[in-house]
Each structure stands twice: as structure tokens, then as C-alpha cells.
Design a protein around this nucleic acid. Structure first.
Length: 84
DNA sequence: AAAGTGACAATTA
DNA sequence: CTAATTGCCACTT
């Protein structure tokens, strides 16, 4: 575990239900606005169930991916009432 | 230790 | 407007 990943986990886990953050936003909150690339990488390698990684989407408004299947991610977002 | 990978983003054509 | 290219970071091998 590195400081960066730790920050990412902390922030993502703090995302309230019904809300979503973009990878860029998360990167900014971690303190590295240019590490949006790494944010996705962290969430991808570490599929922690304590962390709602499905609340993180692309800045383009696209779903992006999901360690359990991007299909499920999209489903969850719709279930939680998030609409782009 | 060095090179490669990826759930991205912004720019250019 | 959409499609393709380049740059970036941290992690994995």
C-alpha cells in the first residue's frame, strides 16, 4: 500500500450513495490532479469490496470499467439513481 | 532496477 | 460533431 492508493481508497469510500466522482476529481482530492491515470489503475488492481469503486466514472460521462464487469457497474449506477 | 500496462484526459485532425 | 493521437501517473512483472 502506498500513500497514493491509501488516499484513493479513503476518498472513494467517502463517496455518498447516489453521488459519483470522475477519475480526475478523485485524483485532485488525492492531491495529484495529474494522477487520474493512476487512480483507475489502483482501483483496477485492488478490487476492495469496502470501496464503492463503481461510484467513479470517466470525465466524459462514460462508465469506464469495473473489476467485476463494467456491465454491473452501469447497472449499480442506474439502481442508485445516478443519471448523467 | 527497468520496461510495460491500464477502469483516463485533453488536444488535434 | 466523432475518431485518433499523445501525455500522464502509479502499479505489476
Amino acid at each position: 500500500m502506498s500513500l497514493f492508493s491509501e488516499q484513493v481508497y479513503k476518498i472513494v469510500s467517502r463517496i455518498p450513495k447516489g453521488k459519483v466522482l470522475t477519475y480526475k476529481q478523485v485524483a485532485i482530492l488525492t492531491g495529484n490532479p495529474l494522477a487520474f491515470r493512476a487512480v483507475g489503475n489502483i482501483l483496477n488492481k485492488n478490487h476492495n469490496k469496502n470501496i464503492p469503486c463503481h461510484r467513479v466514472i470517466r470525465s466524459d460521462g462514460k462508465i469506464g470499467g469495473y473489476n467485476k464487469g463494467s456491465k454491473l457497474k452501469e447497472k449499480i449506477l442506474k439502481e442508485e439513481g445516478f443519471v448523467k
